[in-house]
Simulated scan of single mutants.
Amino acid sequence: MPGRLFLTAPLSGAAGEVGLPPPSADDHGRDDIRPGEALWLVTSDGWRQMRWGLIPQGRRNARGRPVMETLVNARSETVFDKTAFEGVRRAALPVTGWYEWTGHARRKTRWTISDSGGGWLWFACVWDVWSAPGGTEVAQFATVTCAPNEDVAPVHDRMGVLLEPAGLSDWLNGDVATARTKMVLWPAGRLAVAKSPES
């Protein structure tokens, strides 16, 4: 759903897909990116480096209680309705793939999921800025998830919402109704799912 990512190609390639200059620093060559780490995302203002995982600020759940946990993923079905995500902005995260696991503890199989044509995957994300103790401000994000397509369903019951580069501006800058139209399931065959040799 994704819980671990990989980035094995220079971000200049992703930048070229959406007509932007590359970010000020490249961080490809990362084959096991976990929540809490920093990544480059595209926002309505261009590239911004952010930490993966939203720490809620003054947000409350449906029972009116403060949301305490760090939110790594946001469900597409409720991301625009839950108070936990009130006021967040939208971003897109380019990666070359992500991992899922099947099986039981100590006997798990790791799967790599990537674009079947070898291209970039653009995850829909939401983000904001957390004011840490001492006044430090930290840009932070969560990936938006949906039900899996036919490629991913055998290994997980959720996957990240994937955006087409041509629709990126609508996701970043459109109103909520327009953004909802971009959260569509990818057709079967667009993703390659393979057993990882390191599983």
Rank of each mutant, 00 (worst) to 15 (best):
G87Q: 08
E69D: 06
T70H: 00
A91P: 02
A92E: 00
V95D: 01
T8V: 13
T143E: 12
R158K: 14
W130C: 00
R65T: 00
K108S: 01
A74K: 01
F141W: 02
T145L: 12
P23T: 15
E198Y: 12
P66Y: 00
R65L: 09
D175E: 12
N149I: 13
G167V: 10
A153R: 15
G119Q: 00
P165Y: 13
V72Y: 08
P165W: 10
T43F: 02
N61E: 04
G36Y: 05
N149P: 08
R51E: 01
P66Q: 06
M183R: 09
E77H: 03
A177W: 10
V72P: 00
G167F: 11
P165N: 14
R190T: 15
D170H: 10
T8S: 15
A166K: 12
T178H: 11
M183C: 12
V18S: 08
D45M: 06
A192W: 07
V152E: 07
T112K: 09
P94N: 04
L7K: 10
T112P: 05
R4T: 11
M159W: 12
P197G: 10
P23F: 06
G36F: 03
F85W: 14
E17R: 15
T70D: 00
S44I: 02
A91T: 06
S76Y: 02
E77T: 04
L7F: 05
V193L: 09
W120N: 03
D31N: 06
S12W: 06
A14H: 11
K108L: 06
A166R: 12
V161Q: 09
A132E: 05
R34W: 02
G64M: 06
A179W: 07
V155D: 14
L11A: 10
P22L: 12
V144Q: 14
L93H: 01
E150P: 09
A124K: 02
V161G: 13
E150F: 03
G134N: 08
A14W: 09
L39W: 07
V126M: 13
F85G: 09
T43N: 07
M183H: 07
W122L: 06
E77K: 04
P2K: 12
G16S: 13
L121M: 07
E150R: 14
M50E: 04
A84S: 15
T96R: 07
R75K: 13
K182N: 13
P35F: 06
G46K: 08
P56D: 00
W52D: 09
T109F: 02
V184M: 10
A25Q: 09
P10V: 10
A188I: 07
I33Y: 05
D115R: 01
T102W: 01
A84V: 05
P2G: 15
A153C: 10
W122C: 01
F123N: 06
N73K: 08
Q49Y: 04
G135P: 07
R65S: 03
Q140T: 08
R65I: 00
L7Y: 14
V126Q: 09
R65M: 06
R51F: 05
N73H: 04
W101I: 03
D45V: 07
R60G: 03
